[in-house]
């Protein structure tokens, strides 16, 4: 009996994700990995996997799979409609199906399988990087995903008491970025004083935000420079892009600020759960 999961329907967009490819940015390889790292790690813990095992990241639900062996699975993150219990490790017997409806709030749901998704790693990770094309292709209908062998005991948790991902307006903390001076105090006030709307051009690379454009105090070009997840880069349009997991390693537009990230708080993860149309506020954080 081969341990595997057959994908009946991939839904709007599903990829394999793990903790990504740290340490290779100088080669133009971004870290990538799960967009919401905290609930990704939680999914692994709930089925007794090491925290960095590969899982499925479903965007706006819609994923349907069938177990080809007796497996144990769990979903975390955005709670999808349907009979399947959320944040509760559940046996999925051979031949049975799991179908996720659309989530009521939040965007990304993580499906962890005890033993992990065991597709071949690329440069040390099984994550799909949508910008560079590294890692496995996005999950497609009919894919048969191999499942690894369990290596740690089941933690014996029936259900994790987790709050639902918030819908509606979300406020995250923001720190000044390396080029905040390109926008001055007025720019910072404009960034933190208005409500931004997440547009439908957003993806794993970043959230494109709509609002009143930010104005630069100075012209000229910026030589490309390195950046990390959470950067708020401001292109000539004045409308910031909030970079997520698959951001470019370097960029040539000024970064006005950074959304607060681990280890201080996981606000970047919360941004990975925002849907098009949702609104976002940046609250200045003094560090």
């Amino acid at each position: 009996m081969t341990r595997a999961l057959t994908v009946l329907r991939a839904g709007p967009f599903t990829t394999v994700q793990d903790a990504g490819r740290p340490g290779q940015a100088a080669l133009g390889i971004v870290r990538s990995g799960a967009c919401d790292r905290s609930v990704y790690r939680q999914a692994n813990r709930l089925v007794g996997n090491p925290e960095d095992f590969a899982v499925l990241e479903a965007t706006y639900g819609g994923l349907a799979v069938r177990a080809e062996a007796d497996l144990m699975v769990v979903t975390t993150g955005a709670r999808c409609a349907g009979p399947f219990p959320h944040a509760a490790p559940t046996p999925l017997r051979r031949g049975t199906e799991l179908r996720l409806g659309p989530p009521e709030t939040g965007l990304r749901t993580y499906l962890a399988v005890r033993g992990g998704i065991d597709v071949p790693p690329v440069l040390g990770s099984r994550a799909t990087d949508v910008l560079s094309g590294l890692g496995p292709a996005a999950v497609a209908d009919g894919d048969v995903l191999p499942i690894g062998a369990p290596i740690e005991p089941v933690p014996g948790v029936d259900v994790a008491p987790v709050p639902d991902i918030p819908g509606g307006e979300v406020t995250v903390a923001v720190l000044p970025g390396p080029r905040a001076d390109w926008f001055g105090d007025a720019g910072w006030t404009a960034l933190t004083g208005q409500v931004w709307t997440v547009t439908d051009e957003s993806n794993r690379v970043g959230l494109r935000l709509d609002g009143t454009p930010l104005e630069r105090l100075r012209g000229g070009e910026l030589p490309s420079e390195g950046m990390v997840r959470g950067a708020l880069q401001v292109p000539p349009s004045g409308l910031p892009v909030l970079f997520l997991a698959d951001h470019p390693v370097t960029g040539g537009y000024p970064v006005i600020g950074y959304v607060a990230d681990e280890p201080i708080r996981s606000d970047v993860d919360r941004c990975g759960q925002l849907r098009p149309g949702q609104t976002l506020r940046f609250k200045a954080m003094t560090s």
Partner: peptide, 26 residues
């Protein structure tokens, strides 16, 4: 820096005028 990365630094990214140093969480 590449020969002897500072403690806790996981990525060092040179660019035209800058070097970015990225630490591992916590």
């Amino acid at each position: 820096l590449a020969e002897q990365p500072p403690d806790g630094v996981v990525d060092i990214v040179p660019a035209a005028r800058t070097v970015l140093l990225v630490t591992g969480p916590g």
